[in-house]
C-alpha cells in the first residue's frame, strides 16, 4: 500500500514539476523545478530497487549538471518584455516542433498497442545474479558484456571535453600569473641584503 502511495506521490510530483519547468516565466524557477523533477525521478528509481542509479542521478544531474545550469541561468539579465516579443517570431518553429512531438507520441503509443518488437530473447542472460548487490550487478555487466560500449562512451566524452577546451582556449599575452613553486623556492638571501651604511653616505644597490 505504502509503495503504491509513494509511487503515485513521486510520479505526480515529477510530472507536475516537469510541466512547471516549461511553464515557469522565470528561467531560475524553471531550473529549480527541473531539479525537483530529477529528485522525484530518483525517488522512483529507489522504489524500483535501483538505488545505485538513483544515487547517480542525484549526484550527476542534481549535484553537478543542474548547479552549472543554475550558474549560467542566474547570470542572465532577464527582460520579460523582450522574452514575450520573441513569441511571434519563434511561433512557427515552436508549432512545427510541437506537431513533430505529438506525431511521435501518437506513433509511439500506436506501435506499443500493436505489440512490442522482439529485441532480445528473455533467457535470463541479462538478469541480475541473486545475492549480488545492485552496484556489483551493474559493474559486472558494464565491465564485461558492455565494456566496449562503455569505453566508447568514455572516449566520446573525452573528445567532447578536449574539443570544448580547444575551441574556447585563447592565448593571451601580458598576463602575470602566479608561479607558486617559484615563490616557494625563493629564499630570503635572494631578495634582501643587510647593509650598514656610514653616516652621510647612501647605499648603492
Amino acid at each position: 500500500m505504502i509503495q503504491a502511495f509513494a509511487f503515485y506521490l513521486f510520479a505526480t510530483l515529477m510530472i507536475a514539476s516537469g510541466a512547471i519547468t516549461i511553464l515557469a516565466r522565470n528561467p531560475v524557477h524553471s531550473v529549480l523545478w527541473l531539479i525537483l523533477a530529477f529528485f522525484n525521478a530518483a525517488g522512483l528509481m529507489v522504489l524500483a530497487g535501483a538505488e545505485f542509479i538513483a544515487m547517480l542521478l542525484v549526484i550527476v544531474y542534481v549535484g553537478a549538471v543542474a548547479v552549472l545550469f543554475l550558474f549560467v541561468v542566474m547570470m542572465l539579465d532577464i527582460d520579460f518584455a523582450e522574452l514575450r516579443a520573441g513569441f511571434i517570431n519563434n511561433f512557427p518553429l515552436g508549432f512545427v516542433l510541437a506537431v513533430v512531438l505529438l506525431a511521435e507520441l501518437v506513433l509511439g503509443v500506436g506501435a506499443y498497442r500493436a505489440g512490442s518488437l522482439p529485441l532480445g530473447v528473455a533467457d535470463g542472460a541479462g538478469a541480475a545474479t541473486a545475492g549480488l548487490s545492485n552496484t556489483a550487478a551493474i559493474g559486472a555487466l558494464l565491465y564485461s558484456r558492455y565494456l566496449f560500449l562503455f569505453e566508447a562512451a568514455g572516449v566520446i566524452l573525452l573528445v567532447a571535453m578536449i574539443g570544448a577546451i580547444v575551441l574556447t582556449h585563447r592565448q593571451r599575452s601580458g598576463v602575470r600569473g602566479q608561479n607558486i613553486s617559484k615563490q616557494v623556492a625563493r629564499r630570503p638571501e635572494d631578495a634582501t641584503i643587510n647593509v650598514q651604511p656610514e653616516v652621510g653616505k647612501g647605499v648603492q644597490l
Binding site: E51, F52, M55, L56, V58, G63
Partner: peptide, 13 residues
Amino acid sequence: NVGLLYVLAISSL
C-alpha cells in the same frame, strides 16, 4: 548498500 553514494549525493545538495 549505497551509503557512501548517498552521502555524496546529499552533500552535493
